[in-house]
Amino acid sequence: MSKHLSQEEFFTALSSLFTTQKTTQKGTVLLTQKRFTYSPSSPSPPEPTPESESDLSALTTPLPPAPILIRATNAKSSSGRKEGKKVKLSTLVQPDDLDAFYVRYAEVCKAGMSGLKPRDRTKRKAKEKARKKMKAQA
């Protein structure tokens, strides 16, 4: 099992993951986030409470603070794992650090996801052209 990275290491590793994807021009970057409630002292999964009870407790008692686990992987299959192509990253973010983390996370994602369509400006350009023509005629 891999250990959790620090936030700095996580961001550098994540951006390198995006750049390798860009250079190969195909592939996947898979990001996951969830509430981190694992504790080694109680290896069994959270106690199975009856549905009605758990629903009620969720409504009445506020959620105890817990860190958020962020995972990133390039989603390589088992054969890729054998060849050492699989990349798995993870980091823990404490509730107080969430805002700062997500600002940087957004920057990295925006820079990395450059394969998406840019904003379509053709319509606006066409309008401007028409306006200029009108002015020229007038």
Binding site: L63, P65, Y102, Y105, K117, P118, R119
Partner: peptide, 22 residues
């Protein structure tokens, strides 16, 4: 759409804050 990435990550942040108990 590339223009949505920023907004979506912000949404992820809001949801994460909720999940963290804030």
């Amino acid at each position: 759409k590339a223009q949505e990435v920023g907004r979506l990550v912000q949404m992820l942040g809001n949801l994460a804050a909720k999940a963290a108990g804030r």
